[in-house]
Design a protein around this nucleic acid. Sequence first.
DNA 1: CTGAAAGCGCTTACAG
DNA 2: CTGAAAGCGCTTACAG
Lengths: 342, 342
Amino acid sequence: MAKTVSSPPKPAERITIREVAQDAGVSVAAVSKVLRDAYGVSDALRAKVRASMDKLNYRPRASARGMRGKTYTLGLIFPDLRNPFFADVYAGVNSALERTQYQAMQGFSTTPAALIEAMIDRQMDGLILIGPNESAASLAATGARLPLVTIGQHDKSGDGYDTVNNDDQLGARLVVRHLVGNGFRNIAMLSLMQPASTVIEQRELGYRLEMMEQKCGGTINIVRAPQVVRDVQVAVRRLLESKERPDAIFCWTDLMAFEAISVAVDLGLSVPDDIAIVGYDNTMFCDFAQNSLTSVDQSGELLGLQAARLVVERIDGRSAADHFTVPPRIVARNSSRPRKPI
Amino acid sequence: MAKTVSSPPKPAERITIREVAQDAGVSVAAVSKVLRDAYGVSDALRAKVRASMDKLNYRPRASARGMRGKTYTLGLIFPDLRNPFFADVYAGVNSALERTQYQAMQGFSTTPAALIEAMIDRQMDGLILIGPNESAASLAATGARLPLVTIGQHDKSGDGYDTVNNDDQLGARLVVRHLVGNGFRNIAMLSLMQPASTVIEQRELGYRLEMMEQKCGGTINIVRAPQVVRDVQVAVRRLLESKERPDAIFCWTDLMAFEAISVAVDLGLSVPDDIAIVGYDNTMFCDFAQNSLTSVDQSGELLGLQAARLVVERIDGRSAADHFTVPPRIVARNSSRPRKPI
DNA sequence: CTGAAAGCGCTTACAG
DNA sequence: CTGAAAGCGCTTACAG
């Protein structure tokens, strides 16, 4: 390898608004206005400035803009990077932002509170939190500091931030209805062990209510496991080896459902003839024949799209809270098909 | 919903360096130096300033810092969000940055070139590109503008940026050796259809060379498919339905391998008794019993960790290129175990 | 070791 | 509709 010691990259001598102004023969204020599509510039001036910007290949610096105005950057915070569902959400956010000056940047951290601070330090114009663990009060406090939209958080008590949700209660009901319709009655729910999540509340509530309505109240059984491979396996194994083994397990996410299938296969059980499995998120892995997993589609892309729309509205001045709900949809596959009659 | 029209979030009246200076009874320059751990401040002054910063809960604003110095923000660009392998890389980057002031922000776009510009507009201190499609010349041009490290890009001809790589040629060789050792000889490779990737070159080369060395040169067969579910399925189906069906398929990624297993299952074939399958990345899904996929571990976390280390070194002034290579490791599972003797 | 002053590249009232 | 000037919160020479 040649060891040419070149000087480290320079701060890139970029074109500034001043040079554009000079080239166009106008003031810097005029250029700034064109840049922000602000009110009060003539078409002629705008055209002149645009021409100079193109000619000089001008690009505004976000830090400088951030000093007085906006950075045109939105922060995205996911709880888990391994779940492909979040890629759908991100895609939706991006498609909403496509024709705007905004850019979404995603951060990940094991300490979300610190990450929110880091985002604020970097003057994100707005924040989209997916599946936040924070309390409504804590979210309201964040919402008072910058435009905030949550995805997967059902507490709409405050006016300080917007929410976008899948109707989780209905989602759980659809699963129970589907399973009962296919002949399963002893349906266990493998839920998530996590403090204070309104999504968990809603989904468990939907499960309970629908089990009652379907006259399956006697076999209501909720088991909670943390999002950790080992713990999920232990929980599933316990369910599958119990005296009164359930007919079916409704799992928190597709990821957990794949683990459940794995444990069942390891135990020599057949899905769905010995045990039916249903997931949540309808990720692309559900389609693979070795999984063929029935799942609830919560339209991740639509959730992301709406969240981005709402956060931009907030940035533009809306102060009353807005809430958007997406209806869930069950996608039936082999993992829960009716059992072969004996 | 109550429609209390509160004013939109204010720009958050934050504590500035000036107020810290006043509280500590020193100049703003002194505070700035403490902030950057810069040379030339007495312990006494540093302690005073630290105390005031803590007391006032001071946090520096990245935009203001960026105006003159660094933003303490690193850009991460992934080619694909659905592949859980990238979560490992991200985890490695984060763990390298844990005790520093740097924060990694991940962007995703279908137009990587535009995303790089957006990152530069936002004055990222450095960039980590994972699996870039850009040419070495184009990367060198970017490396001249800001500190740059690539992951998964074997062209080390330039001095303008650092590279971190898994030894992909060796990885492919390990797969062929493993399969031949388990009795498979007609081994096809399902590679990626994409213009100009040195990773593809290296992996295909390793496959070819090792097939020759193992006296399997006669059955060398490389099929390329784009990273699209439908195309992968068609390619696999064609392989599995061909007159001279291979014994084994070495797939580009675990994702493609899972699709291959899916097609095999759909065709009523047994893995590995009819067809062995091997993947690449050793993602967590490989462990599930329904996949039980043999795969090459390329230590995503280590790749991310090293990349972060190198980019920070570049930011700190290193100008000679550095290159880091991680040895691959094959993890054998059911999908390629020796066939039952007939 | 410490500090006063200039300036980074924008946006924002404000005056014309 | 247009522009001159102030200022956002830091860092960077430079002087003491």
